[in-house]
């Protein structure tokens, strides 16, 4: 990080924070800094632990999930293992999927799957990164279970009536991700090229992969 600097007695060097240093410091930002500093002072964790965890958060993006989807499209055995145990399948690819079990559900010509967490905002962060704002919104959490097709339409996704729309409300001990259908006309594409087609939103299930 080029912008790293440190104040006297600031407990850890950190990248320049435009939100803190150029905007108002809210009570909650101050609370966050204060809690972090107290926990470091008390050696609950170290400044290094904090830095590593932040790096880890930044390293997670939908690209992790996309690589797995592409591999599953190319390798039926891998796909079977992924549908059985995402976390173990991720490890094969040196992807850390975290300790919370993730279940991959497969879209087929008969079933279109989409995920939500109506009670909070559970999300497969280790494979898709931090959730988009709308995933955590009252509108999405309230409406997806009751009018999934209307919500999908707001994302530009029309699912034919003959296809079952199956909503997964991840309330408990699992996180979900969608294994989208491989688009037609991609027979000659390699894993990297295929991974490039796989978006975050299609792994949430609000979109399908569209190739124009």
């Amino acid at each position: 990080m080029s912008e790293t600097h440190s104040h006297d007695d600031w407990p850890y060097p950190h990248p320049k924070q435009p939100d803190i240093e150029d905007g108002p410091l809210t009570d909650y930002m101050a609370m966050t800094e204060a809690v972090a500093e107290l926990l470091i002072d008390k050696e609950v964790f170290s400044a290094d632990d904090m830095r590593r965890t932040l790096e880890d958060i930044d390293s997670k993006s939908p690209a992790e999930g996309a690589r797995m989807v592409a591999r599953a499209w190319l390798d039926p055995d891998f796909k079977a293992r992924m549908l059985e145990d995402v976390n173990a399948a991720a490890e094969e690819m040196s992807i850390d999927a975290g300790t919370i079990p993730i279940l991959a559900v497969e879209n087929t010509k008969d079933v279109h799957n989409v995920i939500v967490c109506t009670l909070c905002s559970c999300y497969p962060r280790y494979l898709l990164g931090l959730p988009p704002d709308w995933y955590k919104s009252r509108a999405y959490r309230s409406r997806l279970v009751r009018e999934p097709r209307a919500v999908l339409a707001e994302f530009g996704t029309e699912i034919p009536d003959a296809v079952e729309v199956r909503v997964h409300d991840s309330t408990a001990e699992l996180r979900y991700m969608i294994l989208p259908m491989r688009p037609k006309g991609t027979g000659d594409m390699d894993e990297d090229a295929l991974a490039g087609l796989v978006t975050r939103d299609c792994m949430i299930g609000v979109t399908v992969i569209d190739r124009d």
């Binding site: 009670l119 704002d133 919104s137 509108a139 959490r141 309230s142 409406r143 009751r146 919500v151």
Partner: peptide, 11 residues
């Protein structure tokens, strides 16, 4: 809140 009325999803 599952099932309650709410406005459109803000993308």
């Amino acid at each position: 809140m599952g099932g309650l009325d709410a406005g459109p999803v803000d993308p």
